[in-house]
């Protein structure tokens, strides 16, 4: 049995040229710009933890403590110094743990295998004492 393969004539293709360098630099600038946008956001008042698109809990960032939830087995969320981080997780990667602590709206910690997403919500309406659900 013979397999037919097609070869490309790539002799003319260069490693890099001026036009492409410009394109890449532009892309870098755009990406860096997007990177700095969250940093301008306010420090949030509370962290929202979601399982899928359902909010599981809202945790105030003012009080230090550890939290666990039945939806996320093996995960521990820790609040300290006005920021929240994942200190323990049952996932294989531990990407969520390596994200570090977040405290501003726009910042996120995500654990895909556990379907957990932590976001920060700012205090626009936290002059409310309670919310009835």
């Amino acid at each position: 049995m013979k397999t037919v393969v097609t070869a490309m004539e790539n002799k003319e293709r260069k490693v890099i040229n001026k036009r492409d360098t410009i394109i890449i630099v532009l892309i870098i600038i755009i990406a860096l710009a997007c990177l700095f946008i969250p940093k301008l956001a306010d420090r949030g008042g509370c962290a929202v933890i979601k399982c899928g698109d359902e909010a599981v809990a809202e945790i105030s960032l003012d009080k230090d403590g550890d939290y666990t939830f039945p939806e996320f087995e093996g995960m521990i969320f820790t609040v300290a110094d006005g920021a929240i981080s994942v200190t323990e997780s049952s996932c294989g990667d531990h990407t969520c743990m390596r994200t570090g602590a977040i405290s501003r709206s726009g910042e996120v910690i995500v654990c895909v295998p556990n379907k957990a997403a932590v976001t920060i919500e700012s205090k626009e309406q936290s002059d409310l004492d309670v919310v009835l659900k």
Partner: peptide
């Protein structure tokens, strides 16, 4: 079960 927790916004800053 459609489990929703209340939106607790009584977390005013410590100050």
């Amino acid at each position: 079960a459609n489990f929703r927790f209340s939106r607790i916004t009584a977390a005013v800053s410590a100050l």
